[in-house]
Amino acid sequence: MTRFDERETGLPRRSGLGLKPEHYQSINDGEPDVGFFEVHAENYMGAGGPPHRWLETIAAKYPLSLHGVALSIGAAGPLDKAHLARLRTLVERYRPASFSEHLAWSTHDTGFLNDLLPLPYTDETLQRVCDHVDETQQALGCRMLLENPSTYVLFEESTIDEIDFLTAISDRTGCGLLLDVNNVMVSAVNHRLDPYAYLDRFPVERVGEVHLAGYDEAQDGAGDRLLIDAHATEVKDDVFALYEHLLRRAGPLPTLVEWDNDVPAFDVLHAEARRVDGALAAEAARRNARAA
């Protein structure tokens, strides 16, 4: 097994935004002050056309994070070799500063299920996920980041705690971690855990990128709060407070605001990025003051 360079991520310790087709023109024309842009890899797997033309232009101006949403690393079955080859083509073409994927599965032999589905945490599943992360890093020739999931159910057969599971994958494969703070809040509320305790146990020194997003709220069959990872609103205040707590512990980190559904005008997204940059600058200032 090859262990890839464990240097820090190439993403700047700034705010980043998801790149959406409806904003291509305004980003290209206005060149907004944003630390990086992130794209879903699968949206750039066509042979040609405007998506590639725009991505080339914008990736020439900003650091790029390539975020896969469909590799199905948590699948029981083998990884899709054709999909890995498509990812490799993108990595070679755009040379992203970071590649990340999810601790989840989405492909089954019945077809592509288009959601990030959960898996039990056992010795068997840990080994399978490690094999898949290792295979991905070999295929892409770079270290990847693996993202903690938001989940709505638990599995009776799980024997390993989620943080221990992620830490073990990182130990065995050398991969970094992507810490999605909204997912922490969603899973913590859904499984009645303390999100602050989760963050305080998380191996933050392995985090190459942070994600923030908005959640939706519903109730489960017992009337308990059920949070849903929706990416359709601004970051909720409780998630932002949790994020600030993370920064106090870990220091400034590259931080993406995800807003994938009901995408607003670019100014609204940019305001979210400025809020993140404000928190990053405040934490940097706090650390400088303490050091002085």
Binding site: E42, N43, M45, G46, D80, A82, S106, T110, G111, F112
Partner: peptide, 8 residues
């Protein structure tokens, strides 16, 4: 169902 993750 979609045959691949290329939803387009």
């Amino acid at each position: 169902l979609p045959a691949s993750p290329l939803l387009f």
